[in-house]
């Protein structure tokens, strides 16, 4: 934590400089390092396997000390602005001790599988499910990869650019109950079974 003599803002600026120096020094030789509009570092991972390696390294690195996953999301790179692959995975990492943020990005192809980081951050579980739900990016070794916000019977991936905004998919309300990660046999009565 910051000491009383240094204001939090100054503490943050000093740490940010330290982290950026470390990133340029050690991580950016083979990878692209960018800065966003807030001057925060954005590091592009080489491939999907590189993400897990980088997150692990950031967590162990004394100068970066990432210990918190702020957000995990993706966006559609349909126009090819960021590279030749279809999607970009975005990891927002935070250090509770240094108060610094690092954004990790990676290009993922349409049929490519990413690796789960639930072994490092349990909170990634639902976030990865949401990415799968919205974009159809699958994660290897994810404990429970199924739709989270949309209905299970929904077809298509709504946040892909080609999904029309007004394409609605109405469903009736009679769905099977399910127990999520550890399903048990349940005797629920569903009308579909009747006929």
């Amino acid at each position: 934590m910051s000491t009383n003599s240094v204001s939090p803002a100054a503490f943050l600026v000093a740490n940010q400089a330290k982290v950026v120096a470390r990133l340029t020094d050690k991580y950016s030789t083979e990878r692209k390092l960018e800065f966003d509009k807030l001057n925060e570092p954005v590091l592009w991972a080489k491939n999907v396997d590189d993400i897990n390696l980088l997150v692990k390294m950031f967590m162990l690195d004394e100068n970066i000390k990432v210990d918190f996953l702020s957000d995990l999301t993706a966006y559609d790179n349909e126009d090819g602005e960021d590279g030749d692959k279809r999607f970009v995975l975005v990891y927002q990492l935070y250090s509770l001790e240094l108060h610094t943020r690092i954004r990790l990005k990676c290009l993922v192809g349409l049929t490519e599988q990413a690796n789960t980081i639930t072994d490092l951050f349990l909170g990634a579980n639902w976030l990865e499910r949401e990415v799968y739900d919205m974009y159809g990016i699958t994660f290897k070794k994810h404990p429970n990869l199924r739709r989270i916000l949309m209905d299970e019977r929904f077809s298509g991936f709504p946040l892909r650019k080609e999904y029309p905004i007004k394409q609605r998919q109405p469903f009736n309300d009679n769905i099977r109950l399910h127990m999520g990660a550890n399903p048990l046999q349940v005797n629920t009565h569903t009308p579909q079974e009747e006929k």
Partner: peptide, 30 residues
């Protein structure tokens, strides 16, 4: 350009991650 802006909301960290490719609409609004 893009930015990830977080504020301390009442329930916790509320963040808006906006990717802009120029123009009046966001490319990604997270």
């Amino acid at each position: 350009g893009e930015a990830f802006t977080c504020v301390e909301g009442p329930n916790g960290e509320l963040g808006f991650y906006i990717v802009s490719r120029g123009g009046p609409k966001a490319w990604r609004m997270r």
